[in-house]
Design a protein around this nucleic acid. Structure first.
Lengths: 194, 194
DNA sequence: GTCTATATTTGGATAGAC
DNA sequence: GTCTATCCAAATATAGAC
């Protein structure tokens, strides 16, 4: 990342423009201008525009996955694993909000179907494994994994979108959001001896 | 809706195309073809394409709000109110999945900022009011309303997206999803007398 | 109000010099 | 590998007849 080559510059430019102005705003002309390269150069590194966007999406998902796996202990308790992943995803996208916005916008594009869920797979596998372990130990509800995953991401996306819009969150609010997400997964604790 | 006039036909065509192929796929030419009218007719009813999309978004949000308020009792318990709204939103978008997809895609568009949150306001107000009441009675956690709202919508969107993709949900799964969402709002019940 | 035809602009992509 | 120049297709929007 110290010496971004042309390919890196093009990808970052596309990322920034999509995050700022949506897919409609990310024309090849503007991408080239933002990257400081010629429009034709895009096609030396990518087959076409779709290819660029697809590569970018997969790159982002790969980066997020790496960030999340930093120091992850798959032998820890479900609660600790949940918190670890939640916090690390939050931190990763907080450090690069444009990547979050790109991912959200990309997902509403026809390209998403073409993508086939490749980028999503690694992260989904980790979360699904966590869910399964938690279900086995009676910690988590027996609910479809994709449903729980959406309850996992929802507050992360909302917190960071608000932050992008200028709002500030203190540590306690972030912690509460993580807990609320956890509570949606956890088997409710009921008074067992009335 | 029995005799859809040209304006209705144009709006429905735009809705269907955006839901099917995203915003990039909804060109004025294709909208006109889908609606069975001439391209020029679009501009007799809308100032321009953005105006059409904006009107469509607000229309959809208004319809959803009306559907949700059917039989809503704002004196019921927080739990019952929560369930009522959740079920009604779910049913409304289940009956018109294209409207759901349109809304999600529109939200990732620069038009969303231009919209100013007008369409969202009514529904957000109802949910925020519910949250506030629940906080007062000690039923709900003291967490920012927008965060809870995202935990509210997350499973609805995920369930229906999967359904659009061909998956079937039985009543118990839907009920569990609603409960999981509720648990993310509710103050956890702890054994108070060990 | 609706159509047909068209003006105008812009987008994605390529050719070929350096 | 990068740039300049350019082609072609498609998209928004308008003009004007009916």
């Amino acid at each position: 990342m110290d010496k971004p080559d042309t390919k890196d510059k093009i990808m970052r430019a596309a990322l920034v423009l999509v995050a700022r102005d949506g897919f409609a705003g990310a024309t090849t002309a503007r991408i080239a201008a933002e990257a400081g390269v010629a429009e034709g150069s895009i096609y030396r590194h990518f087959k076409n525009k779709d290819d660029l966007m697809l590569a970018l999406y997969r790159h982002i998902k790969g980066e997020a996955y790496l960030a999340v796996m930093q120091g992850y202990d798959d032998q820890a308790t479900p609660h600790d694993r949940f918190t670890h992943i939640w916090r690390h995803i939050f931190a990763a996208y907080q450090a690069d909000p444009d990547a979050l916005l790109f991912g959200l916008r990309f997902a509403e594009t026809p390209l998403m179907e073409k993508e086939g869920g490749q980028g999503h797979k690694e992260m989904a596998a980790v979360l699904t494994c966590l869910r399964d372990d938690g279900v086995t130990t009676g910690t988590f509800k027996t609910i479809a994994a994709d449903l729980l995953i959406s309850l996992f991401y929802a507050p992360i996306v909302t917190l960071l979108r608000a932050e992008i819009a200028g709002r500030q969150w203190d540590e306690e609010e972030i912690s509460s959001a993580c807990d609320a997400s956890y509570d949606s997964w956890a088997v409710p604790i009921r008074p067992h001896d009335p």
